[in-house]
Deep mutational scan, measured.
Amino acid sequence: MAAAAAAGAGPEMVRGQVFDVGPRYTNLSYIGEGAYGMVCSAYDNVNKVRVAIKKISPFEHQTYCQRTLREIKILLRFRHENIIGINDIIRAPTIEQMKDVYIVQDLMETDLYKLLKTQHLSNDHICYFLYQILRGLKYIHSANVLHRDLKPSNLLLNTTCDLKICDFGLARVADPDHDHTGFLTEYVATRWYRAPEIMLNSKGYTKSIDIWSVGCILAEMLSNRPIFPGKHYLDQLNHILGILGSPSQEDLNCIINLKARNYLLSLPHKNKVPWNRLFPNADSKALDLLDKMLTFNPHKRIEVEQALAHPYLEQYYDPSDEPIAEAPFKFDMELDDLPKEKLKELIFEETARFQPGYRS
């Protein structure tokens, strides 16, 4: 834990890192770190609560700039109880001085990944967590956004079992017609939660990839272990087919990539493993919904509104309290091709509203 900075004593240090967030945020305490930044909790002297502050230093890398800009653009436009918001952003007053960006968010005690390492969940908890994931996802999908990296560590939890989806750095506007060349190379989302079509096709992607990830998360809540822990690309596919069985001819016809289709045709026939054999203690309604989410063919996979209306979630289902976005989200430009200098300018502009004396 960093010592509390005395008023006016300059930035606090946390594990050798400068955290320049005073005077409003003090009493910093280390939480963890990701690929390009550290997260601390801090005391907000204005709202009198502890908050989470993520320090991001992305400006050396085009990919990190892209992810940072995506996350900020999306989260500043989203407003939903099951999606983490941005409360404040701290950065230098000029673009030349801006080396880091500090993002202030609600402090959540833990995440689903940490929880599943230590606790076996009751059916009631599984049901409530799944409902909140789908409630947040309904809003995301209504904005025409794909999260693309749903996994237990991106689901934040607090002691009252509130759940918030975080990390929109890989999110995209849904565009089933656009052929994202190089899709697989830039697709760094965790393999275990990846839909089979991501490994088999490169053309376009749809909201059904997020539903697949939610199915993987439900299976993990039922058993405290990942359902498809593939060691590499082909191993991942083999794990999936080992449980779902061989795809039907109709399902194979959806695979545009001939090499991928021929690979699947070359494999020995596998039978589907019954879900109640894998999860003998699970609620039968939970397994019915799991089956509809972990469907090989993305066109037959359940959609988020149908999933919310499934009998497993009937005690929570309330369409009048499951809000959607006001308007579909649009990125003005494809960020993939922009140089990091341009992305830095866009991050600077996007964060201006939090600067003292800002006038829109």
Rank of each mutant, 00 (worst) to 15 (best):
A6L: 06
A7H: 06
A7L: 10
G8A: 01
E12W: 01
R15H: 06
Q17M: 04
V18D: 15
F19N: 11
D20Q: 03
V21F: 07
G22P: 11
G22W: 11
P23N: 04
T26V: 05
L28R: 07
G34W: 13
C40E: 14
A42R: 04
D44R: 07
V46N: 10
V51E: 13
K55G: 15
I56A: 15
E60K: 15
Y64R: 15
C65W: 12
Q66F: 05
R67E: 13
R70W: 04
E71C: 06
K73S: 07
R77N: 10
F78P: 05
F78G: 08
F78C: 14
E81K: 12
E81N: 14
A92Y: 07
P93I: 12
Q97A: 12
M98C: 07
E109C: 06
D111V: 14
L116K: 06
L116V: 03
Q119S: 01
S122R: 14
D124E: 14
C127H: 02
C127D: 07
L130W: 05
G136S: 02
H141T: 08
S142W: 03
L146S: 11
L146I: 10
R148W: 07
D149A: 15
L150D: 09
L150C: 03
L156R: 06
T160Q: 08
C161I: 04
L163F: 01
L163C: 01
C166S: 15
C166I: 10
F168A: 00
D175F: 10
D177W: 05
D179V: 15
H180S: 05
F183W: 01
L184P: 08
E186C: 02
T190R: 09
Y193H: 10
A195P: 11
G204Y: 08
T206G: 01
K207H: 10
G215F: 10
R225K: 03
H232K: 02
N238F: 11
I240T: 00
I243F: 15
Q249H: 13
E250N: 01
D251V: 13
N253I: 15
I255K: 10
R261K: 02
N262E: 12
Y263I: 10
L264D: 01
S266A: 05
L267C: 06
P268V: 05
N271G: 04
K272C: 09
V273G: 00
P280L: 12
A282W: 07
K285W: 06
A286I: 03
L287F: 03
L287D: 05
D288T: 02
Q306Y: 10
L308S: 01
Y312D: 01
Y316F: 15
D318W: 05
S320C: 07
D321L: 06
A325S: 13
E326I: 05
P328C: 01
K330T: 00
L338P: 00
L338T: 02
K342W: 01
K344L: 07
L346T: 10
E349K: 13
T351Q: 06
A352W: 06
F354H: 11
R359K: 14
